[in-house]
Design a binder for these strands. Structure first.
Length: 255
DNA sequence: ATGGTAGAAACTCTA
């Protein structure tokens, strides 16, 4: 079984690239973030023709998440229960016995801003909910754009990024608290190339210069981590014309 | 010292 996550930064713009990517990688499940589409505009038919069912929670202009799957999604839920949020950042579904949670963590804008406080509150609410969700569903996978680079190895220049949003202490501590409920960063279950990143700013030729961060993650419960045989970042879509600023991440699970 | 780019949508905000 193959699960993937990709912040597409506008599903409308990226749909042709996504459809081609699905043919190349034939994942069973794909979590998408920043679809930036209202539900009425979701390209359900194009994806159905490609062999994928979809559940989605979108809004105009910003945010928006979706789960594509070969199997029909079961027990679909939107948002973090009990956490009031206008922004569409979470959708979950059960697929082939696996509870799949797709998250688009707030960016945080800058350390100390209102959006940064919202990000930290949001991560605490996510952690509290997922702790319960893990008890209900031992086979839990949480995929998405976390907007947090956990370790120095996940940042092209840790000195430059120290204390900055996406790599600040409180964000990294919140990420560790999320792992502490019983989730594993699947990427670090295996030896990986140095300077492995999933996001590069559109500006300053950051991609060509290797100025990236690893902020998109696939977290697995212990039960799923035991089944995991591979986790890779696919940088190819980032090289294409008119790319998303994020690369997809893929995991393989054995039966 | 605070721009640089991309997306959506409206002439600015978010990332």
């Amino acid at each position: 079984m193959r699960l993937a996550t990709w912040n597409v930064n506008s599903l409308k713009v990226r749909l042709p690239q996504l459809l081609a990517w699905l043919v190349r990688h034939h994942p069973d499940v794909v979590c998408l973030q920043e679809t930036k589409l209202e539900d009425a505009a979701f390209p359900r038919d194009d994806l159905a023709k490609a062999g994928y069912a979809a559940c989605f929670a979108g809004q105009k202009t910003y945010n928006g998440v979706a789960i594509l799957s070969r199997a029909a999604p079961q027990e679909v839920s939107v948002g973090i229960p009990g956490f009031q949020d206008e922004q569409k950042r979470v959708i979950a579904a059960t697929l082939d016995g696996i509870r799949v949670v797709c998250v688009y963590v707030p960016n945080g804008q800058s350390v100390g801003s209102d959006k940064y406080d919202y990000k930290l509150r949001w991560l605490e609410a996510l952690t509290a909910w997922l702790k319960e969700e893990l008890e209900r569903h031992p086979q839990l996978a949480v995929l998405g754009d976390y907007n947090v680079a956990p370790e120095e190895a996940d940042v092209h220049d840790p000195k430059q990024w120290e204390g900055q949003v996406l790599f600040s202490g409180p964000e990294r501590e919140a990420f560790q608290r999320l792992l502490s409920i019983g989730l594993k960063d699947s990427f670090r279950l295996f030896p990986q190339p140095e300077k492995s990143f999933t996001w590069w700013d559109y500006r300053m030729n950051a991609f060509k210069r290797g100025m990236g961060l690893r902020i998109d993650h696939i977290l697995l419960s212990e039960a799923l981590a035991r089944r995991c045989t591979r986790c890779v970042i696919d940088v190819e879509p980032r090289r294409e014309a008119r790319p998303s600023d994020h690369a997809p991440v893929i995991v393989e699970l054995k039966p």
